[in-house]
């Protein structure tokens, strides 16, 4: 018996190595995939498909969706404007305390967004450390405005962009910048025409991450900007509040958010980052 089993075992292991299926990796991978996809599938199963059309066309959904798309895009634009130079500073200059600054930049990544919202309120609120003067001098109060939504989203989403762009900047061969300098390019021209194009994939990946994070932002938004339909009630807020009154409506809103984010992510990744 043992003798006859040898050739068979040999044959089987030969076939296995030819197939090259590392089950130790595949099984947990499938498990992980299921874990991520199943809850979304649950949304689809429980969706009130018959009433879907009417709900989708309601002004409430449209307002929340437009507000979400608009503020997430604005937040991404602001993050690019402020975050790319910040990433450059972190990657390219050796100012003292740079490590501390980098740690500070990443804090919003680990901070619960609600805490971020509280912090924003304490600083930029009508009664806040800085907001107080803004209110005294101009009569303008940031909380409860659409601008406050953008501010909250920038706070939680910009670190994603900064981290991504800083990584890309560190990966760039700096001698290209030296080459540009010998050709007469000022530092600003070097940055604009050489550095930036070379880190473009990193910037775009960071912008996509940043936009996604802003679109899903809830905690800091509700804390800092409050909740008012059409002005500060973004999709996640609408989902949360509808859940207390009508779970069906909340599911519809969630589906819309899901569909839009998947669509945008697929389009962006295909077109710009070239990863399918």
């Amino acid at each position: 018996m043992p003798v006859s089993s040898f050739p068979e075992r040999g044959r089987r292991s030969g076939r296995l190595s030819a197939g090259r299926v590392p089950w130790l990796l595949v099984l947990p991978a499938l498990l992980g995939l299921g874990f991520l996809v199943l809850p979304l599938a649950g949304l689809l199963v429980r969706a009130p498909w018959s009433a879907l059309g009417a709900r989708l066309l309601s002004a409430g959904v449209r307002d929340a969706l437009l507000l979400s798309l608009g503020t997430a895009t604005a937040a991404t634009a602001v993050s690019l404007l402020l975050g790319v130079p910040l990433a450059w500073l972190l990657a390219r200059t050796g100012f003292p305390g740079r490590r501390v600054v980098r740690a500070l930049v990443t804090v919003p990544l680990v901070l619960p967004p609600v805490v971020g919202g509280v912090a924003l309120l304490l600083v930029l609120g009508r009664n806040g450390v800085l907001g107080r003067y803004l209110y005294e001098w101009t009569g303008y109060s940031l909380p409860f405005t659409t601008a406050a939504v953008v501010v909250a989203q920038v706070f939680v989403a910009m670190p994603f962009l900064v981290i991504s762009v800083e990584g890309a900047l560190r990966g760039v061969d700096r001698r290209y910048e030296e080459a540009a300098a010998t050709l007469g390019a000022t530092r600003w021209t070097v940055f604009r025409r050489v550095t930036l194009p070379m880190v473009a994939p990193g910037v775009l990946a960071g912008a996509v991450l940043c936009w996604s994070r802003a679109l899903g932002e809830f905690g800091a938004t509700i804390m800092f900007a409050g909740n008012f339909p059409g002005r500060t009630q973004t999709m996640p807020l609408a989902v949360y509040l509808e859940m207390q009154r009508s779970p069906e409506a909340a599911i519809v809103l969630s589906l819309v958010l899901l569909a839009v984010s998947v669509l945008v992510l697929v389009l962006l990744r295909d077109r710009w980052t070239g990863t399918p």
Partner: peptide
């Protein structure tokens, strides 16, 4: 209102913070 708060404590907090 400037905002519809998600629960009574949140509404109270807005007043406590002077917002």
């Amino acid at each position: 209102p400037v905002s519809w708060e998600e629960d009574v404590k949140a509404a109270l907090t807005r007043v406590r913070l002077g917002e």
